[in-house]
Amino acid sequence: MIQTYSDERAETPQRAHPRPGAPQVRGWCPGALRPMASGDGLVLRVRPRLGRIAGEQLIGIASAAQWFGDGEIHLTNRANLQIRGVAEADHGALLAMLGRLGLVDLDERAERRRNIIVTPFPDEAGETERIAAAMTAALADLPPLPAKFGFAVDTGAVRRLAQTSADIRIERAADGGIILRADGAPKGQRVRTDAAAGAAVELARWFLAAGGVAAGRGRMAALVRRIGPPVGRDHAEPRRRRKLPRPDRSRTAISSASRSARRRRRRCRRWAASAMSASRPGECSRWRRASPRRRSKASCSRPILFCR
């Protein structure tokens, strides 16, 4: 059975009678306390606090995946660590191991609400850590929200989480200030660092009051497309996402031997078709015409399709 965790597909209306073998959309993401059953066992997701994980915790998760799962750790698009193939009888022992590492919440309700994505490159002044910690502490004041409703703290020097799924975003403005923006809205409201978490809770309440939830599901971007963004004062645009600069290959020092090797590889690609009609398998026409002395200097001991 194939499980689909995509946020976009989770909001797609489903057929009353799905086709046999078609992906099943659950509409919620698994956690450690609330795993999801799949064809190879239970699927668990660990949510590191504030988007950070220590070396000892990572080693412990690797050991847990080796002992109780399929031996692999999957990194999700929400910065969670996923373990698959867990037997139902081993779920309790796995939770005890994760609890000793400090990776399990007190209850399922707290785990479900702690859906905060933090930029991996925070600012040097420490505003990102303070906002993320205040947002984690304000989770108790949040109203019941859809399972996939999430928050993003993207207040680093460069905007990194623009393509990451989130409903309420705390970002850096173009002038360096902090703004609170509803996903799908072009601008956000200016807020202070110490008031960003409280303003995010108020925006979540507006989402519910405006009718953003239907049948237990709903996303902020869909509500903004339907009725528009919330009205506020002193709106500002977020800082634009920067693209990584391409390396300047013209200034890269390349030896003449490397240039010659590249030219030989390009020429050998042209003779790939002639190798299929060679007298012996694996030989190309260039290899057959080469002298024994040149063959002895080749990088391999046997004829190959592409000369190196």
Rank of each mutant, 00 (worst) to 15 (best):
V46M: 00
A275M: 00
A222G: 10
D194Q: 14
I254N: 01
Q163H: 14
G27M: 04
P144H: 08
A290E: 04
H17R: 11
Q3H: 12
R114C: 11
A37Y: 08
G232Q: 15
R114W: 11
S256D: 06
T119F: 00
V46G: 05
E237N: 11
R34A: 10
Q163I: 05
C29A: 12
R52E: 01
N80V: 01
D234K: 04
P281N: 04
G69S: 01
P13A: 07
V158D: 09
Q66G: 08
S256K: 12
G55L: 06
D141L: 15
A214Q: 12
A133V: 13
L161T: 06
R226H: 06
Q163R: 15
R263Q: 09
D123H: 00
E127M: 09
G126A: 04
W28F: 11
D7H: 15
R264N: 13
V213Y: 08
I168P: 08
A195D: 15
R280C: 06
G211Y: 06
A253H: 14
S38G: 15
T128G: 05
G102T: 00
K148S: 13
L106T: 15
L142I: 05
D183A: 13
A196R: 11
A54K: 02
R225A: 14
H74W: 05
P144M: 01
R113K: 15
A222N: 12
E8T: 15
Q66K: 12
R226K: 06
R190Y: 04
